[in-house]
């Protein structure tokens, strides 16, 4: 394991997580959550869990982003907090 790369990805995971929770626009929160899932997928590929990385790439970054966006489309986009 190259710990420098993993450290960078871990920091980006935390940053994307904070961004998804704090942004006021729910659509961008959904997209940021997709980016968060993709960073986790990279992290698991580095740690040797290829099956989990594959699942996360197809499920977390693919389908769940679509579900979030369609739910935002059906409800409202802006929020107060």
């Amino acid at each position: 394991m190259i710990w420098q790369i993993e450290l960078i990805i871990l920091v980006m995971v935390v940053l994307f997580g904070i961004g998804a929770l704090t942004t006021k626009d729910l659509l961008s929160a959904a997209i940021l959550f997709g980016a968060y899932s993709f960073m986790l997928c990279l992290l698991w590929a580095i740690m040797g869990a290829v099956d989990v990385a594959f699942t996360e790439a197809s499920v977390g970054a693919g389908i769940s982003t679509v579900l979030f966006v369609s739910a935002v489309y059906r409800t409202t986009r802006s929020t107060d907090n």
Binding site: L21, L26, A29, F33, F68, A71, T79, N81
Partner: peptide, 9 residues
């Protein structure tokens, strides 16, 4: 968070 979508995230 008060917003349900944020709670799910």
């Amino acid at each position: 968070k008060k917003n349900y979508m944020k709670k799910i995230i």
